[in-house]
């Protein structure tokens, strides 16, 4: 299934189609910047389902988010995990071509100039998108 998705996504990229994903976002009801990130994903055409778990930390642990990469919200797309304020284009690039063994991406904490945190029109800067794999090994995916 993952392979099929990958092929479809690659095709979508090559042909310039906008590929829409179904995203489950785990967040707290009181998280404003999480909702801002969700709006960005929805504006890009993705379908977002929001869940408010009793314990966000327990959800992150269950989904296998490495402790040091924690942010406010956690998203799941096609069994991959996306933690925090990751730019939409990086999520899509990752899904189209996941590095071997990778389980997901994260932008730890709440960087000021990240999607959902930055004021509209402000260029994303001053944070790293971190990849993590099934051995909990971390790697730099993209620098802003």
């Amino acid at each position: 299934m993952k392979n099929l998705t990958r092929i479809a996504l690659t095709l979508a990229f090559m042909t310039g189609f906008v590929w829409a994903e179904t995203i489950t976002v785990y967040k707290s009801p009181t998280c404003g910047c999480c909702s801002e990130w969700v709006k960005i994903m929805e504006a890009a055409g993705h379908e977002v389902h929001i869940k408010h778990p009793v314990s966000l930390q327990r959800t992150k642990d269950k989904l296998g988010v490495p402790n040091q990469l924690g942010s406010c919200h956690t998203s799941v797309i096609n069994d991959y995990v996306f933690e925090g304020h990751i730019p939409e284009q990086d999520v899509m690039a990752f899904l189209a071509n996941p590095p071997e063994g990778a389980r997901g991406l994260a932008v730890p904490g709440m960087p000021a100039n990240s999607p959902g945190m930055a004021a509209e029109g402000v260029e994303y800067s001053g944070f790293n998108v971190i990849g993590f794999d099934d051995q909990n090994k971390l790697f730099l995916y993209k620098k802003y």
Binding site: C31, L56, G70, M110
Partner: peptide, 10 residues
């Protein structure tokens, strides 16, 4: 812990 993520995250 406030709000589920705490002040610490920011």
């Amino acid at each position: 812990e406030s709000g589920g993520y705490g002040c610490a995250v920011c």
